[in-house]
Nucleic acid binder design. Structure first.
Lengths: 185, 185
DNA sequence: GTCTATATTCCGATAGAC
DNA sequence: GTCTATCGGAATATAGAC
C-alpha cells in the first residue's frame, strides 16, 4: 500500500479521457509520476487490467454520487448529473463512455464487458430517475423513459465530444437546452 | 489513375469508423487490397494526408447529398439525414465526427482543422434546415435553432456509439424518439 | 515495489530496383 | 505505381537485481 496504484489509475483515467485508451502508453503514465514503466506493469500486468480497473472505479464513483442524491427531487438529481459533465467539460475531458465506445471494437473481451456494464448502469439509473420524475411532475417528456434516457445520455456524451472540436460553448448550449426541455414549468 | 487511390481512401474511411484513426495501420489498408504498405505511402506520404483526404471526401459527400434534398420539405430532409446514420448503424460503423472527435487532441493541426470544417458544415446545414422547417411548420421545437442543431447532432453521433456497446436497438430507440419529438402533428 | 535492461513486435516512413 | 528491403522509433511486456 504505497499510494502508487491509486495514482496510476487516476492518471490512466485522465489519459483515457484526453487521448483515448489506445493512444496513451505506459510511459505517459510513468513519466509524470516519476516512476518507470516496469512499476506500472507490476500493478497492472497488461494494459487491459488497467483499463478494467479504471472502468470499475468509474462505476463505483457513479454509484456513490447517485446514492448521495437519493433524497433530492428528480429534476435536481438530473441537474447534478449534468454538473458532473460540466466539470469534465471545463477540464477538457470527455466522458469515459464516449472515449471507450469509439475504441470498443479494439478491446479485449474483459474490457468490452466492463464497458457494457458501465453503460447499462447509467441507462438504468437514468431511466428510473426519469420515470419517478415524471410521476412527481418535476420532469416532463413524451414517450418511454428508456428511450428518453438513451437520448439524454447521447446528448451528454456527445456534448463533450463536440466541445472538444467546436469549443466549450457547445457544451453549454446543449446542457442548457436539455434541462429546459425536461424541466420547464 | 488506377483506382487504387480511391480504394485506399474508401478502406481508410471504413477503418476510421470501425477502429479509430490511431488504431489502424497502413498494413490494415494494404493487406485487404492486396498491395504493400509502400504503395499506400506513394499515394499518401503521411498518415495525416490520408486522414485529411478521408474528411474532405466526407464533406463533399455531405454537400452532394443535402443538395439533392433541397426540394423536399424540411422534415423529409431531416428524415433522410437520419437514414444516412441508420445505414451506418446497420453496418456497424460509427460516424466520422464521433470517431475523430475522440482522438482529436492527438491529431496534427492540418487534420484538426479539417475536422472542425466538417463539424461546422453539418451544424450550419442542420441549423438552416431547422429554422426553415419551423417557418414552414413541418418541424417543431423550442429555443434557438443553433442549440437544437447541436442537440440533434449529438443524438445522432452518440446513437451509433451507444449502439456499438448496447446493441443496434439503441439506435432505433434514439432515432424514432428524435423524429417523433421534432415532427409530431 | 521499484529499478535496469532487454525481448518482441509493430508502426510510419524512406530508398532504390523494376 | 508497385515492389523488396530496411531504418528508426515506440509500444507492451518480461527477467532479474536490489
Amino acid at each position: 500500500m504505497s499510494g502508487t496504484k491509486e495514482k496510476i489509475v487516476s492518471m490512466a483515467d485522465r489519459l483515457v479521457r484526453t487521448k483515448g485508451f489506445n493512444a496513451f502508453s505506459y510511459k505517459d503514465i510513468a513519466a509524470p509520476l516519476d516512476i518507470k514503466n516496469a512499476a506500472v506493469h507490476y500493478h497492472f500486468p497488461a494494459k487491459c487490467d488497467l483499463g478494467v480497473e479504471v472502468i470499475e472505479q468509474e462505476i463505483e464513483k457513479f454509484r456513490e454520487q447517485t446514492g448521495k442524491w437519493k433524497q433530492l427531487p428528480e429534476n435536481e438529481q438530473l441537474a447534478r448529473l449534468v454538473d458532473v459533465f460540466r466539470q469534465h467539460n471545463s477540464q477538457g475531458n470527455i466522458c469515459l463512455m464516449g472515449s471507450l465506445a469509439t475504441d470498443f471494437e479494439t478491446f479485449a473481451p474483459a474490457m468490452q464487458t466492463k464497458v457494457q456494464e458501465m453503460a447499462d448502469g447509467i441507462v438504468t439509473w437514468l431511466t428510473q430517475c426519469l420515470e419517478q420524475g415524471r410521476k412527481n411532475k418535476c420532469i416532463h417528456f413524451k414517450g418511454a423513459a428508456h428511450a428518453r434516457a438513451l437520448l439524454i445520455m447521447s446528448n451528454l456524451q456527445s456534448s463533450l465530444l463536440l466541445s472538444r472540436v467546436m469549443g466549450p460553448t457547445a457544451f453549454r448550449s446543449i446542457a442548457d437546452q436539455l434541462m429546459e426541455d425536461l424541466c420547464q414549468k
